[in-house]
Design a binder for these strands. Structure first.
Lengths: 207, 207
DNA sequence: ATTCAATTAAACCAAATAGTTAAATTAAAT
DNA sequence: ATTTAATTTAACTATTTGGTTTAATTGAAT
């Protein structure tokens, strides 16, 4: 045989490209075959149906992203350091592939059951790590005791992901060009750590 | 004639429902006709093509949302009041129609040109109002002089919209049910104003 | 009473599309 | 050398789908 595992992967890469670019409903098996440089027959030979292929792609993409996010939270010395690293790595990554988050958001919201199969393929270990970091800084009196780690984590994700996703809207509403919006979004790498820290500093607690 | 304007609107409402639920590529003209309680022929009699119908729906939905957001920023006495009102109104609205933001985000990211026709149908007047509010509070020494109104505004949008959009993901990753995630999201109505304020308070400026 | 737009029903068309099939070819493994 | 999996080509099927057509009906406006 010529390869097989190589081809399987080539297909997965092509399918990922096309599905992310066009969405599940918009994607065509023929496009995927073209992108992979093979024919439709071979596509079905490997993955049977569009749905199976999509599931394979989606699971891969989703766990990749989750791992990427969670891996950034391993053993950080401080919230400050974590925020610096996280916003830099994450926003840079998002800017390199801005269609990705919109794809995931949309597909999950269209077919919430997509996730049920994935569950268990990754751990929420990363979130626990983050929770421990928050608790540590609480004890050190650096951040307000009322701070909910999960809410804080969601805030951090929101502040990094959402602006990149709505870049086309920002660009249009504010009449900017892509260069300007990119500058605007990159600024956030510097702005966000300080702003998030300020939002949880102990003095600000109203409790 | 029997009605016409009534029908035109009935179609638009049905199309909105179906397009938001299924996306442009996933939506079927037959579904829209069914939803409107008419037949396909009449659908095309009024709106010609799927694309025209979609454009009509999208423009309507998009300007609605933008107006909703911008109308909340008219003449607020203070940032504090604005934040209280905004997060309450906006998050409540989002929770009542959680598929809507994902729809807009996805369609815009798939066809950025959708927006070009819409531009001019609304003003960025709301943002200017918000900018003035920020400047006023800067002069009063309430918030840090380095604060960029636009970045702040994007932060506010991110913090309200994004968590609602990724509710299915939160639910799955953290093994919650819909009741729990809704409670979690509603908590944010109370948490966010204080947290945003803290992030821009003068003492925190590092400048 | 007649006209004319609104509406329905149903068949129809053409294109696109997911998926299949069958026959031939290639090349690695035994 | 033979087997067997991988791959191609190309035609084909069945279904879906956007859109059209035609003939008939309804009902308001003139």
């Amino acid at each position: 045989m010529v390869n097989s595992i190589q081809t399987e992967d080539k297909i997965l890469i092509a399918a990922r490209e096309v599905f992310i670019r066009e969405g599940y409903d918009g994607a065509r098996m023929q496009h995927i075959a073209d992108e992979a440089g093979i024919n439709k027959a071979l596509l079905h030979y490997y993955y049977g149906t569009k749905e199976k292929l999509f599931t394979a792609v989606f699971e891969r993409v989703f766990t990749e992203i989750l791992n990427r996010i969670f891996s950034l939270m391993e053993e950080q010395q401080s919230l400050k350091v974590f925020l610096d690293v996280f916003f830099r790595e994450h926003i840079t990554f998002l800017l390199s592939d801005p269609r990705l988050p919109a794809f995931i958001i949309n597909e999950v919201s269209l077919h919430p059951d997509l996730l049920s199969n994935i569950f268990g393929k990754f751990s929420s270990y990363g979130i626990e790590k983050f929770g421990m970091l928050v608790e540590k800084e609480k004890e050190q009196g650096l951040i307000a005791p009322g701070t909910d780690p999960l809410q804080l984590f969601i805030n951090i994700l929101s502040l990094s992901i959402f602006p990149v996703v709505i870049e086309p809207i920002i660009r249009n509403v504010l009449q900017m060009d892509t260069k300007e919006t990119e500058t605007f979004l990159r600024q956030r790498i510097e702005l966000l750590p300080e702003m998030v820290l300020a939002s949880v500093r102990k003095e600000n607690s109203k409790k």
